[in-house]
């Protein structure tokens, strides 16, 4: 099982919400830009991999008990969105990797993470 810290390292990711604990386990990964699908199908405590950077991603993640958001293709949300995530104690990691590459790297290290 990987920790969020190990996932960050695996993806050479930047933590946009410094100070939030990454020593949590990353047990499941769900990759989607469709928040409707996230709400319908994600397991609690999953890591959400997405290319969307609106405040709705943070709220959807919060409501669906997501443990961390990974933003692909080096995307960075507006500071307001990052602030909202920080207030909700939700880590956001930004990586230059594509969504496919994120899933591939995590899958190589933790084959059980997908669903």
């Amino acid at each position: 099982m990987l920790t969020l810290k190990e996932v960050q390292s695996l993806l050479s990711g930047e933590l946009l919400t410094p100070g939030i604990n990454l020593e949590k386990e990353c047990s499941k990964v769900f990759a989607s830009d469709m928040m409707s699908d996230v709400l319908a199908f994600i397991d609690p405590e999953s890591v959400l991999v997405t290319g969307l950077i609106t405040s709705h991603v943070v709220r959807t993640a919060c409501l669906a008990d997501v443990s961390a958001i990974i933003l692909v293709q080096g995307k960075r949300p507006e500071p307001m969105v990052v602030d909202e995530a920080r207030v909700r104690n939700l880590p956001i990691i930004s990586t230059a990797c594509s969504m496919f590459e994120v899933c591939a790297r995590i899958s190589r290290s933790h084959p059980e993470a997908g669903r």
């Binding site: 469709m34 409707s36 709400l39 997405t50």
Partner: peptide, 11 residues
């Protein structure tokens, strides 16, 4: 915005 997949009411 990531909505409108037709999953709302069923969900």
């Amino acid at each position: 915005l990531g909505f409108g997949a037709g999953m709302g009411l069923p969900n």
